[in-house]
Design a protein around this nucleic acid. Structure first.
Lengths: 247, 247
DNA sequence: TCGGCCACCATTGTATACGCTCTTTGTGCA
DNA sequence: TGCACAAAGAGCGTATACAATGGTGGCCGA
């Protein structure tokens, strides 16, 4: 790893620097999105360590900026900050998983009514486009992309209902759900069935909030049901099984 | 330049101690609570500027720590971070106020069912104690204390229902409600009527989640109704009014 | 051979220094 | 008299430096 030879270079020429990052956290925001996306897409798996130095090196900023981003991610529960051990991608506990889905069930279903009333033609087209991309990603076996799109879809849906506070909350829940899928999901059985989202759009387009709500309920419950939620008791006994087989 | 291999000689004598501040954000957390409480109690009013230097001075830490705290408060929407202008206590917009109460109505009512099922004798006593303190604060005209206790009460209630994720959300909403009261509330008409909380406890103690939910709905709606929600167009023209009266 | 101790290292936590932008005030000109 | 421009000042954004801590590996003693 070496000495970071080039990072220092950027500052030398003054404001030079990549991608014109503005003053505020403009540049930092890009880093935030970048890491956030990597986590949601499971390119960074739960438990993965996120060293500040390494990230600082990758993104060409100092640790200060990275710390800021990491802190934000920690507040959204996407990463866990252990006092002297640094940051790592959060590995949701069973309780957390249950809580998150319960919360989604409660909030997202309740928002369907408002969404059905407020949805516009533009919204519908946008959602359909997203659903289409998701189907394509699924068809191409790009599960990572599909998962991200699914989270975005739910977040966008929440925005349509007009309550920004709740929408922000749903966004967080959707991101965390992605982590939960990474830990407790079965391979081959992706969270959202591809046609579910289309059906949801249809109900909303028809202005039928009640049906949309019912469908959302089934949708979320089916995702939760597809998980293998049982805590892995592997503390250390791992080795015995592994080597017993071997020997 | 990064090769700092030998500098760390000092560790020799050891782990000595450091009494105070723990490692992590132990000390910072206290600062966070301190500022947070000041905001909720309206000792810091919406719009108040929070200069990093000043806070660093007050709490005896450097700006670094203050920034960390400020960022966290910003993520919880208690303070607003304007790019080059620094931090100030958030002044909730009319839309925000509506969103927050809508969210509370949705979430808190829905949680009553679980709360009624899970509440224990200890919880009941704790809540009653809190309600009692709140009544006393109101009687003593200590509205600031009462507002804080009210927010804490609602947050604690949410915790009882057993879903930490939702409880955290309710905590945030309660804090923000305090800000909303500061901006749109009428003096003399505090948010929560003092006996409301007692009634709520009674319903929960009786295990009647439905009634508790209904009551919570009325409770929150009455608070919202007591607000004078119309946007004040005062951007800076403050002075004109003041001196017009004077002259 | 195993268990405990000690030194080193890797990595984070905190503080300080510097540069940049925005605001404000003062002055000159139309 | 009013407006525009410039300079100074204040405050934030970022990087770097230093200190402290927990983990890791090796050594010694039982």
């Amino acid at each position: 790893m070496s000495d970071s030879r080039q990072t220092a270079k950027t500052t030398s020429s003054g404001r030079g620097q990549v991608s014109g990052s503005g003053p505020g956290d403009n540049g930092l925001d890009a880093i935030y999105r970048s890491i956030s996306e990597a986590i949601i897409e499971h390119r960074l798996k739960p438990g993965a360590r996120l060293r500040e130095d390494a990230l600082a090196d990758v993104f060409g900023v100092s640790r200060t900026g990275i710390r800021k981003v990491l802190q934000r991610l920690a507040l959204e529960q996407l990463v866990t900050l252990t006092p002297r051990r640094g940051a790592s991608v959060t590995r949701p506990s069973v309780d957390e998983a249950r809580d998150v889905f319960e919360a989604r069930l409660l909030v997202e279903c309740a928002m369907m009514d408002a969404a059905a009333k407020r949805i516009t033609e533009e919204d519908i087209q946008e959602l359909q486009e997203m659903a289409k991309q998701e189907r394509e990603a699924l068809r191409n076996r790009e599960q990572r992309i599909a998962i991200k799109l699914s989270a975005t879809f739910h977040a966008r849906l929440a925005e349509i209902s007009g309550n920004r506070t709740l929408a922000g909350f749903v966004g967080q829940l959707a991101s965390r759900s992605s982590l939960i899928l990474a830990v407790y999901g079965n391979a081959g059985h992706l969270g959202c069935e591809s046609h579910d989202h289309d059906n949801l759009i249809d109900f909303l387009a028809a202005g039928d909030g009640a049906k949309a709500s019912d469908f959302m309920e089934r949708h979320l419950k089916s995702i939760e049901a597809s998980l293998s939620i049982f805590e892995e008791p592997e503390e250390t006994p791992d080795l015995w099984d592994i080597f017993a087989v071997d020997a």
